[in-house]
Simulated assay, not measured.
Amino acid sequence: MATTKWSIDPTHSEIGFKVKHMMFTNVSGKFGTYDATITTDGDNFENATIEFSGDIASIDTANADRDGHLRSADFFDVENNPKLTFKASSFKKIDAGDYELTGDLNIKGVSKTVKFPVEFSGTMTDPWGNTKVGLSIEGKINRKDWGLNWNSALETGGVLVGEEVRLNIELQFVKQA
């Protein structure tokens, strides 16, 4: 069977995350510049090859000082580690629209295997004749697993920045001719 390539549609995608601030509220952010591709056997997404890269310099939390701190050596160290990457090792169908995505997430030169549930929308043709597919990914990672260790103790107890990062990713791909 012929392989099919799918490219990210960045105007209909978002790579978002949330982290607890001061132990009780969430700060949200996103990556503005990224790339992703999927390679499938025909239009069958089971065991698809999925690759993603995000530009650390494009991190946006709606606060320039915080974004600068996240880009610094305290966190992502963008000068030495300009991208984070993900490469799937498995994309397994669980039932009708539910899949499980497993792969290696590389941040700051540290690679760890992660597993996320994925809501798969199936394929759809847009008004201009393009075949599209949508994926919604939600999951959690511990930022310390990738050496993102910076924190500050609070006088009242606890820490300024939570360790758990919740991912909220909406991806739309377009089938390539």
Results as ranks from 00 to 15, higher is better:
residue 14 E to Y: 03
residue 117 P to K: 08
residue 90 S to W: 01
residue 6 W to H: 03
residue 134 G to W: 10
residue 177 A to E: 15
residue 60 D to L: 12
residue 117 P to N: 13
residue 58 S to A: 11
residue 6 W to V: 09
residue 89 S to Y: 07
residue 58 S to N: 03
residue 153 A to D: 10
residue 149 N to I: 10
residue 89 S to D: 15
residue 9 D to P: 03
residue 167 L to W: 10
residue 41 D to Y: 00
residue 97 G to R: 03
residue 43 D to A: 09
residue 176 Q to C: 12
residue 11 T to W: 05
residue 115 K to D: 11
residue 111 S to W: 10
residue 115 K to E: 15
residue 142 N to S: 07
residue 150 W to F: 15
residue 125 T to K: 10
residue 62 A to R: 06
residue 60 D to H: 05
residue 137 I to L: 13
residue 48 A to D: 01
residue 23 M to S: 08
residue 18 K to T: 12
residue 37 T to L: 14
residue 122 G to I: 09
residue 15 I to N: 01
residue 173 F to E: 12
residue 69 H to V: 05
residue 66 R to C: 07
residue 88 A to Q: 05
residue 98 D to R: 10
residue 93 K to N: 14
residue 129 G to N: 13
residue 111 S to D: 09
residue 45 F to T: 01
residue 99 Y to E: 12
residue 128 W to H: 12
residue 69 H to W: 00
residue 41 D to L: 09
residue 134 G to T: 11
residue 21 H to T: 04
residue 57 A to P: 03
residue 82 P to G: 10
residue 16 G to K: 01
residue 122 G to L: 13
residue 47 N to C: 06
residue 173 F to L: 15
residue 9 D to L: 06
residue 41 D to T: 03
residue 126 D to Q: 09
residue 112 K to C: 14
residue 143 R to N: 06
residue 88 A to D: 08
residue 10 P to R: 02
residue 137 I to F: 09
residue 1 M to T: 05
residue 55 D to K: 08
residue 46 E to A: 07
residue 93 K to W: 09
residue 168 N to L: 14
residue 80 N to S: 13
residue 107 I to N: 00
residue 13 S to I: 05
residue 124 M to G: 06
residue 95 D to I: 07
residue 106 N to I: 11
residue 80 N to I: 08
residue 135 L to A: 14
residue 35 D to R: 01
residue 142 N to H: 03
residue 107 I to K: 03
residue 166 R to I: 15
residue 38 I to W: 02
residue 174 V to D: 09
residue 135 L to G: 07
residue 175 K to H: 13
residue 126 D to K: 06
residue 106 N to E: 15
residue 99 Y to H: 10
residue 109 G to N: 06
residue 21 H to Y: 11
residue 67 D to Q: 00
residue 13 S to Q: 00
residue 91 F to M: 09
residue 73 A to W: 00
residue 93 K to C: 13
residue 61 T to P: 06
residue 70 L to K: 01
residue 31 F to I: 06
residue 131 T to P: 04
residue 133 V to R: 05
residue 127 P to M: 14
residue 149 N to K: 02
residue 114 V to A: 11
residue 150 W to E: 03
residue 119 E to Y: 05
residue 54 G to Q: 03
residue 19 V to W: 01
residue 124 M to C: 10
residue 42 G to A: 07
residue 98 D to Y: 06
residue 52 F to L: 15
residue 104 D to T: 06
residue 17 F to Q: 00
residue 52 F to C: 14
residue 91 F to E: 04
residue 4 T to Y: 01
residue 80 N to Q: 13
residue 21 H to D: 04
residue 119 E to F: 11
residue 9 D to E: 14
residue 86 F to T: 03
residue 168 N to M: 14
residue 84 L to H: 02
residue 67 D to F: 04
residue 60 D to T: 06
residue 143 R to E: 07
residue 116 F to K: 02
